[in-house]
Design a protein around this nucleic acid. Structure first.
Length: 424
RNA sequence: GGAGAGGUGGCAGAGUGGUUGAAUGUACCUGACUCGAAAUCAGGCGUACUCGCGAGAGUAUCGGGGGUUCGAAUCCCCCUCUCUCCUCCA
């Protein structure tokens, strides 16, 4: 969430910057609440001060064995007034807090202003899309004979669920292992294993709640607080540092995790209904870094590079896109999307999204570090997919297909598949 | 699942209703002493927020929430986490 002090001191400017990402901040409503809060808080604190002083006097008088009935009656009427003021103040502060929690992050000044994905900025293209001398198939047609089983997935769970069998299941696993090994062994990330069900506080910390509950799968329990299935490992991994103060020398913290991700995809009806592109459940290898505020911009470049390395090793053509203000995610300050070439769609499709969240999540999580002056300061958080495993599988199938419907296994993947060279 | 014990400042650890934001130790910072250091002595040392140009003043905070009271770290209720024992289990 945003720094409330920034809103207090520079409200108009904040509103203007939020407008660039299609969030309309009700400036007058916010100022009205703030003004009300100010006077109410002052009054409440005055009453509390009065009560504390009187209570102290009572204590002193009692110690000396004096009569306290006069002071007692003096302070008695204060009680109701104080209670009312405290309740009103708490309600008001909740209101302001709710408003704050539903505001997206401010885009960094380097982010291009734009309304939607058509105004994103292409940063680079890597690799050359392969030219096929036969009629190509998409991953659904290619995958079917190899064990990509949509019917069974649907039978077990419903639309947007998929089962994998045989060689393709193995390749799916190989991809995840390859990614994880690359990030831990070559890029210096610590591998973490996390719960896949998290509480509301964690979802609040990374920004999925309170605003996007409909995108989540929620597990209701009769005698306990509900839990939520993680939509990305970003949630549990980033929350490692929630409510904690880490040491300066422990920064940066670099975590990678391979987890399933669960998304209800509310509001995506009719989009990408065919194939593996948009599922309720998919696997992803995630990169998360907790860094010193001075390092977040440069870290975004290196972290994105770590995700790119996977595509490069797999020799999959891709492009890197800097999202414009109108297309960025809720908590992001700057986002690069990596889009892989899908020959059957004749286009680049998102396979990774790497973002710097600045202090946005850290403030929600109260994740801090002791800075050089020994003061507690909010950390900065970053995350990126490195990569979405299902979509990588799609890309491999389509880009490595042969005329007979078999798939040449990318060289870097073969050690993970017992040396196998072709999937058929 | 059952029984018990316990969560206090960076750490350790007092404190069971009244000048307690919290003894003491330790760590840390500043100063004195010293050529310098150690030791010693003196002072300081959490966080968030409010008001104020400022000096400063005030409020909240002893796992979290609620309650009793003029007053709660201390009493009551709920939750949560940790530890020990039993049970169960992969």
């Amino acid at each position: 969430m945003l720094d409330i002090n920034l809103l207090r001191t520079d409200l108009e400017n904040v509103a203007a910057r939020l407008a660039s990402r299609k969030f309309i901040l009700d400036v007058s409503a916010f100022s009205a609440l703030e003004n009300e809060r100010k006077s109410l808080q002052t009054r409440t604190q005055d009453l509390q001060a009065k009560r504390n002083a009187s209570s102290k006097l009572i204590g002193q008088a009692k110690a000396k064995g004096e009569d306290v009935s006069v002071i007692m009656s003096d302070v008695a009427h204060l009680g109701d007034e104080l209670k009312a003021a405290e309740t009103a103040l708490a309600t008001l502060q909740d209101k302001i807090n709710d408003m704050l929690l539903s505001m997206p992050n401010l885009p960094h000044e380097s982010v291009p202003v734009g309304k939607d994905e058509t105004e994103n900025e292409e940063v680079l293209r890597w690799g050359t899309p392969r030219v096929f001398d036969f009629e190509i198939k998409d991953h659904v047609d290619l995958g079917g004979p190899l064990g990509l089983d949509f019917e069974t997935g649907t039978k077990l769970s419903g639309a947007r669920f998929t089962a994998l069998r045989g060689g393709i299941a193995r390749m799916h696993r190989a991809l995840a292992q390859f990614m994880l090994n690359t990030h831990t062994l070559e890029h210096g990330y610590e591998e973490v294993y996390t719960p896949y069900l998290v509480n509301a506080a964690s979802m609040m910390g990374t920004g999925q709640l309170p605003k996007f509950e409909e995108d989540l799968f929620k597990v209701i329990r009769p005698d306990a607080e509900p839990l939520y299935l993680i939509p990305t490992a970003e949630v549990p991994v980033t929350n490692f540092v929630r409510d904690s103060i880490v040491k300066l020398e422990d920064l940066p913290m670099k975590f990678t995790a391979h987890t399933p991700c669960f998304r209800s995809e509310a509001g995506a009806y009719g989009r990408d209904v065919r194939g593996l592109i948009r599922q309720h459940q998919f696997e992803k290898v995630e990169l998360v870094q907790i860094v010193h505020p001075d390092e977040s911009l440069s870290t975004l470049e290196t972290l994105t590079g770590h995700a790119e390395a996977i595509l490069q090793k797999l020799e999959l053509p891709y492009r890197k896109v800097k999202l414009c203000t109108g297309d960025m995610g809720f908590g992001s300050q700057i986002t690069y999307d990596l889009e892989v070439w899908l020959p059957a769609q004749n286009t680049y499709r998102e396979i990774s999204s790497c973002s710097s969240m600045g202090a946005f999540q850290a403030r929600r999580m109260q994740a801090r570090f002791k800075n050089e002056q020994g003061k507690n300061e909010l950390v900065h958080t970053l995350n990126g997919s490195g990569l979405a495993v299902g979509r990588t599988l799609v890309a491999v199938l389509e880009n490595y297909q042969n005329s007979d419907g078999s798939i040449t296994i990318p060289a870097v993947l073969r050690p993970y598949m017992g040396g196998l060279e072709v999937l058929k």
